[in-house]
Amino acid sequence: MNFFNLSSPNKFQKFSKRIYPWVSYGSIMFLFIGLFFSFFKSPPDYLQGESVRIMYIHVPAAWLSLQIYVVMAICSFVSLVYRHSLADIISRSCAPIGATFTFITLITGSIWGKPTWGAWWVWDARLTSELILFFIYIGHMIVSNSYEDYRKGDKNAAILTLVGIVNLPIIKWSVDWWNTLHQPASIMKLDTPSIDSEMLTPLFFMAISFFLIFLSIMLTRISTEIMVRKIEIIKSNF
């Protein structure tokens, strides 16, 4: 099939119906593999002890909170320039998922911070910028739903997303630019990862699982949104 046909909502919906079961079952399969490795096959850390296991959900959630924003920013750009309806639909479906993953990042990070740092929350650059990301997601959801005409909501939410992209490099490199309590990157750096391979395996499987969970929820929300718009069109035609 032609990949470019996917830009038509109808073709996309057919395609998404076909891959949804694979994505959905895949996410559950990888989740169980990931859980098995994170509790049975990975050792405690030399310094943090057992609390290192929180990393296996905290880090994938944090990666996704940034990746989803990148997807939304690209869609917002396409929507503003080329007025493509599918871009708006994807952006609108992604916002609640991004907000959830950011929320998970903040909460698990907080629970991890208590036994390691000795504090639930500190106002250092990494934590603060991640909190701002959460507010941007919430703002996107509020803006896109607060207009009678959904097209107006889409447009304003897209502008908000493009403005908010300033926050992404700040989150990513905050640990290098400033003295933060949060530790620097272990994997996403030019050097070799500074995590032992036994701890890298559960992290890897959890990251795949979280990504598939994101995809499966996104597909559901996109097909819902396409139908909502079809209903609007039918209503306005009569």
Binding site: D45, V52, G118, L181, Q183, P184, E198
Partner: peptide, 16 residues
């Protein structure tokens, strides 16, 4: 207030 800071290295105790 005293807060512990840890680095980006993760490894099992035996390897340390």
């Amino acid at each position: 207030k005293v807060l512990a800071k840890h680095d980006e290295n993760y490894m099992p105790p035996e390897i340390k």
